[in-house]
Design a protein around this nucleic acid. Structure first.
Lengths: 245, 245
DNA sequence: TACGTTTGTGTATATCGAACACAGTGTAAT
DNA sequence: ATTACACTGTGTTCGATATACACAAACGTA
């Protein structure tokens, strides 16, 4: 039931074909595989995006799927999600939030896999971001109608969690450059929430959170009156620290 | 790696001793066991309680643990939590809410077990409730300092989730008899939240939810002015339907 | 210098949570 | 029958917060 991971990290999601073969010869040892799926959000062109990979399962040809992998026997569940993120994006020290565990018997065509979903927010334009295969692509959330496995449901669940958390916690930190205008921040919130927000009320609300400090710099390269730049006072939420209430 | 469940249902939590023995002879097939842990809340004597079993692990002698079991290979994760609840309490059709999945490598002394926590609310005095062993006991939440495994952390997480949900969803339905006074409801909320509440404000708030209907009956057997009885308009939240927003 | 676009700011209104008091009704004891 | 006791049932005020909404100033461009 244990699957060589070095093989898997460069391929798409889980490869249970060999495990399924083992199952028939050693049924008493085959129980349930444990995996993590990472919903890696990015932000670009005023759209919330998610990093997907083309499914290499016949059952799901032409569909995309989330990035996931089996959890290693000597690896914490949280650490597995962090490893997937690192292996896929080269990013370290990024906020990861556990969302829900999906455990329907038939959710994976090759065998029984229980998968815990995490979401993460990364800066698409970060110089540290290193997408290590051509198979990975950013997809606008709005354009996604169908994914492999139950990944659409996982995605929807994570989007909803993200929406619930952005007003209470400065999770969007990683989606923006270090310095940004309030307008940019508002556009980000609008993209995540899928609504438009009143500008004055938004600024008041954000000001009350006390998350930002205003810089003595103006945005540049815009064709209108430039706004003041801001930055987050605190470091981005830390790896796996999660959200404290 | 697959463990006979009929043996387990009457014993305490997981029994991985045999699995651990298998591990050394067939390391390549031993991956990770998947379990569920149920935090079954009850309410009695104005206290929030939880159903616990005495741990039969040497490592945790004299400690109590939550009710859990391994998930069967052909059983949905949610169904496993439902089965544990049914096997332990005889109760059917009860609200269950997934809360979090705990996956630290060292959380179980006998081997690698990833466990998904659920909470549930049951009526301690229900005639349907049938606690099928003498090893199960209700413990006041406030009195619990330490549990086996990481179960104290699981319990705390579930209590917190319950506290967050009771004002938005009529989850406490199952903790009360069919007809109850507003005072009884308030005492229940106070027990769950661990605070005292202003009576007039509480009644206003509950009235706004529109969850209750007032009956033409008064409470009986009290030594003071009796209050009007109320009941929930809707059926209790359903099995595994979860909370919809 | 006029236009287009965005910045930056404040007020009025409705809603919500928190604090708070008093008359009424049933029981139990005398 | 009277009284003590314990709880029911109810409304207002205050501060905080959400929402709706308008206008002058700044910068770039033509």
């Amino acid at each position: 039931m244990y699957i060589e991971h070095s093989v898997m990290t460069m391929t798409n999601h889980l490869n249970l074909k060999s495990a399924a073969a083992e199952k028939s010869s050693h049924p008493e040892y085959f129980n349930i595989a444990v995996s993590v799926d990472c919903v890696i959000f990015g932000y670009e062109g005023k759209e919330l995006k998610v990093l997907l990979i083309k499914s290499d399962f016949e059952e799901f040809s032409d569909l995309y799927s989330l990035l996931g992998d089996l959890v290693k026997p000597d690896e914490d569940l949280d650490a597995a999600s962090y490893r997937v993120l690192r292996e896929r994006t080269g990013l370290d020290d990024v906020f990861l939030q556990q969302v829900h565990t999906f455990g329907a018997v038939d959710r994976h065509p090759s065998g029984r896999v229980v998968s815990t979903a995490y979401y993460s927010l990364v800066n698409i334009n970060s110089h540290k971001l290193n997408i290590n295969t051509n198979d990975l692509h950013w997809h606008s959330i709005k354009s996604i109608k169908k994914l492999a496995f139950d990944h659409k449901k996982i995605l929807d669940t994570c989007v909803q969690m993200l929406q619930e958390q952005i007003m209470d916690h400065p999770v969007v930190h990683n989606l923006l450059p270090e310095k940004f205008s309030l307008r940019a921040l508002q556009e980000l919130y609008e993209a995540i929430l899928g609504t438009s927000l009143d500008r004055r009320n938004f600024r008041k609300k954000i000001a009350l959170k006390n998350w930002l400090s205003e810089l003595d710099e103006l945005e540049e390269g815009v064709t209108h009156r430039p706004g003041k730049l801001h930055k987050f006072k605190t470091k981005p939420l830390n790896l796996l620290k999660g959200i404290s209430k």
